[in-house]
């Protein structure tokens, strides 16, 4: 009896394959589904592996890992607060510098520039986004840091030295250098995506504004308003890049786990801690703490990217209804 049942089940599956009119299509569908699912599995697996690897540290330090500010491998005390602080502050400041510049670039490219200039300029901007970060790092060490040490920091401490942000000795290496280099790296990403977003606003919107007697500037503001969610999405992607950036930052930030209001002081970011210290991580606890740091970075990046996606989707849906 049971045998008959299974054979009929087999038959029905076989029928199903045949009834999908084309065996090739059936295989094609399943195969691509498999590939798509594998990406999803990879992310889950990555998260799971990191969780497993960091279990030791999570069990020992619990939430204090996130709020404790001592990072001392010798005494085996791991508190990541200064590192998280360095990551967040450097990325946020970089964004504050890069965002207005990027939007300016995007507006120029999409609304103002004549076509013969727009093409090569856009290409250059996209080229900037593709430069390997170690090259930015080299430029940072040999050009940016000396310039900051000799010109920027003395000037700032002279004029604004009474503020806590500009106190201390001018090393060159430090948070300020990291912020500047990050903003340079983030700028092409935000501006090229923002340009695409602005260009995706239909021409009829600009014409609607102009036909009402708007000046070029006013019609651009209306276009910008329509593009707001997309630009926000671009900003989030830029933020993701700034938070995850490793090489260039490590080369100029000074690499010390320190919470200081001064931009002149050295700092540390999650990505650079991992890159610098995993070779020295001799004890299991040390390694586990580094992996937990990676997990925190992973989660933050996923959240930022998910938010960016959602924002871009909300924009797309809006256009479909018109």
């Amino acid at each position: 009896m049971r045998k008959v049942e299974t054979s009929s089940k087999k038959k029905s599956l076989f029928k199903k394959i045949l009834s999908s009119s084309n065996v090739g299509d059936f295989i094609f569908e399943r195969l691509t589904l498999l590939f798509a699912v594998s990406v999803f599995l990879l992310v889950i697996l990555l998260g799971y592996e990191m969780y497993q690897g960091s279990k030791l540290s999570i069990e020992k330090f619990g939430w204090s890992f996130l709020v404790n500010s001592t990072w001392d491998p010798v005494r085996e005390i791991y508190g990541a607060l200064p590192i998280i602080y360095g990551t967040v502050v450097s990325a946020a400041l970089a964004l504050i510098i890069a965002l207005p510049l990027s939007i300016g670039v995007a507006i120029y490219l999409s609304e103002v520039a004549p076509p013969w200039l727009e093409k090569p300029l856009s290409f250059l901007v996209e080229l900037l986004a593709g430069i390997p970060s170690v090259i930015y790092g080299l430029w940072g060490i040999f050009v940016l840091v000396p310039w900051i040490r000799k010109v920027v920091e003395p000037y700032l401490s002279d004029k604004l030295g009474y503020l806590p942000f500009f106190k201390g000795a001018p090393y060159g290496f430090g948070l300020l250098a990291a912020v500047i280099i990050l903003s340079v790296m983030v700028l092409p990403i935000i501006s090229s995506i923002s340009r695409d977003v602005l260009k995706s606003v239909p021409r009829s919107q600009r014409e609607a504004a102009l036909a009402l007697g708007a000046s070029k500037w006013q019609s651009t503001m209306i276009v910008l308003r329509d593009a707001r969610p997309g630009i926000l999405g671009a900003t989030m992607l830029g933020l993701g890049r700034a938070i995850g950036e490793t090489m260039a930052v490590t080369m100029v930030i000074g690499n010390r786990a320190l919470i200081s209001p001064s931009l002149f002081d050295p700092s540390y970011t999650m990505a650079s801690v991992i890159a610098n210290e995993f070779t020295e991580a001799t004890s299991e606890m040390y390694l586990s703490a580094l992996i937990e740091l990676a997990l925190v970075l992973f989660v933050i990046t996923i959240i930022i990217n998910a938010l960016a996606r959602l924002l871009v989707w909300s924009m797309d849906r809006k256009w479909k209804t018109t």
Binding site: S204, A211, L212, S215, R225, D226, R228, K318, T322
Partner: peptide, 21 residues
Amino acid sequence: PVLLRKRVGMVFQKPNPFPSM
């Protein structure tokens, strides 16, 4: 032209309200 377009309004082929407003 900016002043002119306040005197001469235009309705387009495809409705183009501002979706963000």
